[in-house]
């Protein structure tokens, strides 16, 4: 045994203590509350997406003539294809949901404040990438709704001043959806965006390690208790538990509400009822409320504001002399978000 250890030690000259030092970030106590462990959930789901996505890529074909058929093959013919596809679909849904929840937690606990402003910006980038990945992924199915969703989205981007037309051309590889469009979506979805997400996540986590997790204290904690516990193995076990719960949840969703096939994309007929994926309900409703340019420009401003919120927050505090000004803004924004989403969900047009 010791000879084996020595052999390994010689070839991989990392000492156990060093490894422990590296991984054993002391974890603040508040992370024992699930609400604060949401940051790891999207990371875990991202791994699920990478694994199931790679599996799906074995069968997916990104040419418009074969795309829908290949998805149908996965869903109906390939063994466990429906399960893998449903996992991918549900993990995407949960990932976007958990990213939003994670962001809300960070926002309401004001964890983005000095010195963590940059990490908030990186988080915003991750959010954008996640949404884009969801959008491009849905387009790959090449069914009626996803086809027309992509068409509409491209034309929305066209309305963006100055860069809009450029963006649309880059997205569609032409003025309209054409045979070179789908491969673009595929490469964005399966290569460009995931790689970006991995890089951003690395930076995101590095920042967390550098700054340490924002420490929070609660009134029910006794002051004698130590305010940290070990990442390894304690917090790792928590994450493992969360991971398994997620897997079981995904399995349940995949079996109860499996991903189905819509009618194949038909560029000549727009379906009567057209809706994007649920996470775009907000912007879809927003679009219907205002004229296209107003809606697009206002959306742009809102996103920009979200990116620079740590600084806006400081400005707000200075102006209102209220530490919690952002919280009130957040509450209003949350209600707006939920309201618009529900509105879009319950009406057909």
């Amino acid at each position: 045994m010791s000879r084996l250890n020595a052999w390994i030690q010689e070839r991989i000259p990392v000492h156990g203590d060093q490894l422990r030092e590296l991984t054993n970030e002391p974890v603040p106590n508040h992370l024992k509350r699930w609400w604060f462990a949401l940051g790891g959930t999207p990371a875990y789901l991202f791994v699920v997406q990478v694994v199931t996505g790679i599996l799906l890529a074995f069968y997916y074909q990104s040419s418009p003539s074969a795309a829908w058929e290949s998805v149908r093959y996965i869903t109906e013919d390939a063994r466990y294809g429906w399960y893998i596809r449903s996992l991918h679909k549900w993990a995407a849904t949960l990932m976007i949901a958990s990213v939003i929840l994670h962001q809300m937690r960070v926002y309401f606990t004001a964890a983005y404040r000095r010195p963590r402003e940059l990490n908030w910006v990186i988080g915003m980038c991750l959010l954008m990438c996640t949404l884009l990945t969801g959008f491009t992924g849905y387009s790959l199915v090449f069914e009626q709704l996803s086809y027309w969703g992509a068409t509409v989205a491209a034309n929305i981007s066209d309305a963006v001043p100055v860069i809009g037309s450029f963006g649309k051309q880059m997205l569609l590889a032409g003025d309209t959806y054409n045979e070179r469009t789908l491969p673009r979506f595929y490469i964005l979805h399966a290569a460009v965006l995931p790689t970006t997400i991995i890089l951003l996540m690395a930076v995101h986590i590095t920042f967390i390690r550098l700054h340490g997790v924002t420490e929070l204290h609660f009134e029910d904690e006794s002051p004698d208790e130590p305010d940290h516990f070990n990442f390894f193995p304690d917090h790792l076990l928590t994450e493992l538990t969360i991971g398994l719960v997620l897997m079981i949840l995904l399995s349940a969703l995949a079996t109860v509400l499996p991903a189905t096939m819509g009618p194949r994309a038909n560029p000549l007929v727009t379906p009567e009822v057209i809706k994007p994926e649920w996470f775009f309900y907000v912007s879809f409703r927003w679009l219907k409320l205002f004229s296209l340019s107003v809606a697009v420009i206002s959306t742009g401003f809102i996103i920009a504001a979200m990116f620079v919120w740590p600084w806006i927050d400081r400005l707000l505090i200075r102006l209102t002399r209220n530490e919690d000004a952002s919280v009130y803004v957040g509450i209003v924004a949350t209600f707006l978000l939920i309201g618009l989403t529900v509105w879009e969900a319950v009406v057909t047009h």
Binding site: T241, L244, S251
Partner: peptide, 23 residues
């Protein structure tokens, strides 16, 4: 926690067996 992880793993296994039955 270890026990919980183990049990959850088994539950996951059960859900996958259900998936297999469906297949």
């Amino acid at each position: 926690k270890q026990l919980i992880v183990g049990l959850l793993g088994l539950m996951f296994l059960l859900s996958l067996i259900f998936v297999q039955a469906m297949e």
